[in-house]
Amino acid sequence: MIKSLNNLKQGEIGVIKAFKGKGEVRKHLMEMGFVRGSDIKVERVAPLGDPIEVKIKGYSLSLRKEDAKQIEIEIK
């Protein structure tokens, strides 16, 4: 099942399948290590849903909800 990263719950793991964003947003996410085929785990979601803390390639990163909406994930 494909979902946007912002819809995953704490503890869920998935694989990055695609990006909705274009231009600078996409470039910024890819520079941070968000590339197709990478495993990603949602470590924590703030009480109001923003930011979302994820683990990717051994690193913990925080994303704004708007940026997380741009990343499509297939849940494992």
Rank of each mutant, 00 (worst) to 15 (best):
L29T: 04
E53Y: 13
E53H: 11
E74Q: 13
N7F: 06
K22A: 08
I2F: 11
G11M: 10
I73K: 02
E31C: 00
I56D: 01
E74M: 09
S4H: 15
E53M: 12
H28N: 12
P51D: 09
M30R: 13
F34Q: 01
V25P: 00
L63W: 11
K55T: 11
Q70E: 10
S4W: 06
K17N: 10
K22Q: 14
G23A: 11
G11D: 15
F34T: 04
E72D: 05
S4T: 15
S62T: 07
R44I: 02
K41A: 03
G23W: 03
K9I: 01
I2G: 04
I16F: 01
L63P: 10
L48E: 12
K76G: 07
G58V: 09
V42L: 07
E24M: 12
K57W: 03
G11A: 12
V15G: 00
M1L: 12
K55N: 11
G11T: 05
K3T: 15
E12R: 09
E12I: 08
L5S: 10
V54C: 04
D39W: 05
E43T: 09
A68N: 08
V42Q: 04
K22R: 14
E53A: 13
V42R: 00
G21Y: 05
R36E: 15
G11H: 08
S38T: 00
R64M: 12
P51E: 01
V45L: 05
E74H: 13
K69N: 07
L5R: 06
G58K: 12
Y59A: 08
E72G: 01
D67G: 00
K65N: 07
E53L: 09
K9F: 05
N6D: 15
E31V: 01
K9P: 02
K17M: 11
K41S: 02
K69H: 08
L8D: 12
K22Y: 05
Q70V: 01
K76L: 02
E72H: 02
L61S: 08
F19R: 08
L61Y: 13
R44E: 13
V54L: 02
